[in-house]
Design a protein around this nucleic acid. Sequence first.
RNA 1: UGACCCAUGGUGUAAUGGUAGCACUACAGAUUUUGGUUCUGUCUGUUAAGGUUCGAAUCCUUAUGGGUCAACCA
Length: 557
Amino acid sequence: MEEVKKEERSLNFLEEIIEEDLKNGKYKSIVTRFPPEPNGYLHIGHASSICLNFGLTQKYPGYTNLRFDDTNPETEDTEYVDSIKEDIHWLGFEWKNEHYASDYFDTLYEYAIKLIKKGLAYVDDSSSEEIAAMKGTPTEPGKNSPYRGRPVDENLSLFERMKNGEFPDGSRTLRAKIDMAHINMLMRDPILYRIKHAHHHQTGDKWCIYPMYDFAHGQSDSIEQVTHSICTLEFVPHRELYDWLIEKLEIYPSHQYEFARRNINYTVTSKRKLLQLVNEKHVDGWDDPRMPTISGLRRRGYTPESIRDFCDRIGVAKRENMVDVGLLEFCVREHLNKISLRRMVVFDPLKVVITNYTGQEEILHSENNPEDEQGGTREIPFSAELYIEREDFMEIPPKKYFRLAPGQMVRLKSAYIIKCEEVVKDEAGHVTEVRCTYIPESKSGSDTSGINVKGTLHWVSVRHAITAEVRLYDRLFKVEDPTDEEGDFKEYLNSDSLQVLPCVYAEPSMKNAVAGDRYQFIRKGYFVLDKDSTSAQLVFNKTVGLKDAWAKEVKKG
RNA sequence: UGACCCAUGGUGUAAUGGUAGCACUACAGAUUUUGGUUCUGUCUGUUAAGGUUCGAAUCCUUAUGGGUCAACCA
């Protein structure tokens, strides 16, 4: 008599549309596409779009293409093509076909001729300034170009000569003939083709005219028979033109749907702004661990699972939003807690001498991950001279301080309970050493002391510790929305977003760590070994801290 | 002085004319050899005013607020 309770998750608005289309037989299967322009690295906003497009065809019959929207050769590069492919794969998705809008340049050229022949496109000799002046404003109609009435034959020959490279950049364009008084500015004879004598990363020097977004995107969707072309809200006004061109060209009717891009606080997600940060060296490159790029998050130690989970949790809708970066951090903590190996690392050492420890050293054992029963244990050397964290000792502790203080006892994780007997200081009054006694019967796993202590500290044996560099990161910007503030967004960069600790002390089991290994440094946070590591020098990036109830307590006062 | 899109706790997102729910955050407590994890509980919401209806977050009207549109960018 078991209750089969199927967790019924509600559908987002796109899933509803698709289920309707499938149910009423409009489609038997669907085709989506992820269409980046290869002019920058993918960021967390793109991850949302990737999870959406690929997620839809995992849930419903069909497939997703990767298509590079490469119609502007001046800003694009194969470096970006490669990074985009790597990032999508890393996120865990596989596209069905890899396409380029530039694959369709011949077809697009034919489409343009078809439009000209139908009297729906003309070659305009006006300059870009003249075109702008004739465009009108949102509240005033535009004016017809003097070239608007050109006969078809003349348009045909001029357009061919444009293609043949007879005219300089900017001298002529091909425009759709729609309506210069249209209420939608995009319908006021939009430019379809412009002249650019530029080398293209895919087509080389074959072309010197390139289609605009509006004459490439929807047509590419159509050629690939994309059923649901999903883009962000700023393209809503383009939909009318998207549909107009498909109708006049009489080609496969793809449909465009829009959702609100996801914004995250304390960062920027605009390729233009990210490019500035890279070019002006505010960060160390596209994969700087502070960057919201996929490659930055990867280097920071984020897992693909955690990013997918994040995208899933923030969902899809049509309203403006600002997602709290805390949710992203929650997602990565949740995953890392399950998979990362626990290790002890002391950042700011304070020496502890155990005065009654008579042995040379002994080997203790500690679990690799309390969340994972199969995780096994590791060996940790213990001796009379240890390092603990300087902040884990206070000579005059406040109330509710569970750590080490004169006369007080704490447990050393996986080792013994110790009691602070004496504080050693230098002439300046600085604490240089704490002398303790240990309780031999309190050994971890075989504790017969009957003593209960509130605090447990991480530690390393001075003689056995290895050193490493640790890089700590904070949010890139000081304000939630840098683009919404006065002046340049870069004025709001957080100058303390990177802190390097050149020498921390780690337990020796970490000696053989390899790049990409993820750890939880007990009581400190999650860390990943950086690609900058060498056999002589380990370098760790802090992915995210642990939740810290004590820090909050201290803050409250 | 236009058109279009949008409006649910601090944040994100459900409820598709019929009990305003979920997650994060915050707060409290329990457990804990990580002040972590886990568990339990609590606080907080339908932009406003009208209308339709037995019944409105949902439909209609108006107002208000936010966003988008005048690149040979995508």
